[in-house]
Amino acid sequence: MTDTSRRGFLFAGSIAGAGLLAAACTSNTEEGGGTGGQNVSTGGDNDKPGKQVTIGFSAPAADHGWIAAIAKNAEAQAKQYSDVKLQAVQPTNDINQQISAVESLIAAKVNALVILPNDGEQLNQVARKAMDAGIPVVNLDRVFPDKLSYRTWIGGDNYGMGVAAGHYIGGRLKEKGVSNPVIVEIQGIATLPLTQERSKGFADALRTYGFRVTAQQDAKFTVESGNQVAGNLLQAHKKIDAIWNHDDDQGVGVLAAIKQAGRNEFFMVGGAGSANAMREIKAGGVLEATVTYSPTMASSAIKIARLIAQGKGMADLVEKQVPQSITLASETITRQNVDQYLPLGFES
């Protein structure tokens, strides 16, 4: 990855999650019975110091803006708590090295684990090993296929990302009166379930407008591949009406290829919500929108791991335990609302 894809990251991890799940976590002792036998949550403040806990953290190497922001968010959130020690292992893109790193955290008997696996299927067994050892695992983003391998999963809505992009593109093309449009889709890593979910959501949403994807190719989440793939697609299609690029990091390369080709007859939608993509949207040009997949989920994962390790529940829920899964919303960022989202962006 070149330096163009790894510029500095926004203030300590996008303001430590901006309280996605934060603002009001409450201890179980503050939940009470309501009238008529109904249970209610009366609020509280689980951010106050509690039992000291050590949270292990493992993620891929930070050679990608979104992944780097994940690590920054986790670190920044952990620093907010005097009762949390974050034990982060060396990030790596090597599956075996990540397995070994997680095993070292299990041997250290941490109180909870937050794991963003390089590949959920290949890390599934070691996550199950942690759970079997009594260490609750918060599975971040790329899901383990075995639900017994994690206590709670938190991540973005990949299908929802595709749906949001599809509706934006479908709606804009209908507004413009375009029939039989040429729609190009640039994926991330095609073999990942998250990519397949994004593509399915995109196709399903386009279908409601009577449209379909004309050409689809994966760019592996890198600037270089984004540039190469976009260049090839631009050469193959002399006229394009819309492009959906799954990932704003690889979008740096995609936009560079578009600029180099001197093409502007189409509009483009990005994915994830990087700060540089938002600045492009604000400036005007082919990039009209991006759909969110915020790395602030790492901040929330640390908060969740802390609550689980301390035996606490969540604020605005009546239930006494943290939920088994939490899916974040995918939101569409355009010139109309970009200023609201820019402070939460990460640098690609």
Score class of each variant (00 low, 15 high):
residue 127 A to L: 09
residue 51 K to A: 01
residue 228 Q to S: 15
residue 105 L to G: 14
residue 337 N to F: 13
residue 253 G to E: 11
residue 76 A to W: 03
residue 26 T to L: 07
residue 37 G to K: 04
residue 113 L to H: 09
residue 295 P to F: 06
residue 229 V to W: 11
residue 66 W to A: 08
residue 298 A to S: 12
residue 218 D to Y: 10
residue 317 L to H: 11
residue 97 Q to V: 07
residue 117 P to C: 13
residue 80 Q to K: 14
residue 44 G to D: 02
residue 234 L to I: 15
residue 137 V to L: 10
residue 154 I to G: 04
residue 99 I to E: 12
residue 271 G to W: 03
residue 139 N to M: 10
residue 217 Q to D: 10
residue 174 K to T: 12
residue 169 I to F: 02
residue 319 E to T: 09
residue 189 I to K: 13
residue 4 T to S: 03
residue 249 D to Q: 14
residue 167 H to M: 05
residue 99 I to W: 12
residue 26 T to V: 07
residue 345 G to I: 09
residue 337 N to W: 04
residue 51 K to D: 00
residue 28 N to W: 04
residue 44 G to C: 02
residue 187 Q to R: 08
residue 65 G to A: 12
residue 248 D to P: 06
residue 104 S to Q: 15
residue 159 Y to H: 09
residue 260 Q to T: 01
residue 125 Q to E: 12
residue 336 Q to D: 15
residue 10 L to F: 05
residue 182 V to P: 03
residue 194 L to I: 14
residue 26 T to P: 07
residue 287 L to T: 02
residue 280 E to Q: 05
residue 38 Q to P: 00
residue 246 H to N: 10
residue 100 S to D: 11
residue 225 S to Y: 07
residue 272 A to H: 11
residue 201 G to L: 00
residue 233 L to W: 10
residue 133 A to H: 14
residue 51 K to V: 00
residue 273 G to R: 06
residue 119 D to G: 09
residue 339 D to R: 06
residue 332 T to D: 03
residue 16 A to C: 07
residue 167 H to K: 14
residue 222 T to D: 02
residue 221 F to E: 09
residue 225 S to N: 15
residue 190 A to P: 08
residue 142 R to E: 11
residue 314 M to N: 11
residue 165 A to I: 00
residue 321 Q to V: 09
residue 216 Q to E: 13
residue 27 S to R: 08
residue 105 L to Q: 12
residue 232 N to S: 15
residue 233 L to A: 12
residue 157 D to Q: 02
residue 210 G to E: 09
residue 132 D to Q: 10
residue 321 Q to P: 06
residue 130 A to W: 08
residue 52 Q to I: 00
residue 72 K to G: 01
residue 264 N to K: 13
residue 305 A to Y: 00
residue 310 Q to N: 13
residue 15 I to C: 01
residue 135 I to N: 01
residue 87 Q to T: 02
residue 287 L to N: 09
residue 198 R to I: 09
residue 199 S to Q: 04
